[in-house]
Design a protein around this nucleic acid. Structure first.
Lengths: 115, 115
DNA sequence: GTAACGTACAACCAAATGGTTGTAGAAATG
DNA sequence: CATTTCTACAACCATTTGGTTGTACGTTAC
């Protein structure tokens, strides 16, 4: 059994913050589908190399991608594990809501003629 | 069949941005479990009423909560629909990754003695 | 060896964020 | 009616963000 470490608030902050930008989401998409060097990525967007480099750094800080050095290049790879952690977080909210619905159902199911 | 509207990039930005703050995540949790007035919420955090009001506004702008006026109060309610939309977005990333694994599996399954 | 390429990083800037206080109005209370 | 409560919103402030350009350095190619 795999023991999943608790994520701290600030780690969760970083994950969602990192996903709150369409360029970064696109980088995640690309690098989940296929490894890409930072230059490969930079070529795909209408902004400076340094800007793309910063986006990658934000994603790396959030654990959404990893970088693998190869010669003078850095290969960026999307990290499905962190995506799954984010899904689990959202799922917890769903469960909270379902629990509320369950409570309401219970109320409605009670004897309609209480003392 | 329910037709799900496409979310624009900026709408997705707003959803993840809104979730990238632990106070706001807590407000979502509370209001998914049970409606609460803005004052109820403000009483729960160590910050000004106006600050909490702003957090609620950010969540409302992202569609993560709705406000229902009742007399002088505004009842805040978590919106499970938007949570689910966010889950779907993350799920799409999972799928992209799985597709890559699938492609790799296909490669490995090929005739190990190609021409 | 020299030039070109890929990356890192600092400095800078405008805009957005997350907090504050203060003012004002609408609804409930006494 | 007067007062309190709940909310809205403006103005302000420090920090962070998302972009830029410029410099430096290791690696590859000629």
């Amino acid at each position: 059994m795999v023991v999943e470490m608790e994520l701290s608030d600030s780690e969760v902050d970083r994950i969602f913050r990192a996903l709150a930008d369409s360029t970064r989401r696109d980088i995640v998409r690309r690098t989940l589908a296929e490894e890409a060097s930072v230059s490969d990525l930079a070529a795909a967007y209408d902004m400076s190399f340094a800007a793309v480099q910063k986006h990658v750094a934000v994603l790396e800080g959030a654990g959404l991608v990893t970088k693998r050095p190869h010669g003078r290049e850095r290969y960026v790879r999307g990290n499905p594990h962190t995506i799954r952690r984010a899904q689990q977080l959202l799922d917890a909210y769903e469960q909270i809501w379902r629990a509320r619905i369950g409570r309401l159902d219970d109320l409605l199911a009670e004897d309609p003629r209480p003392s």
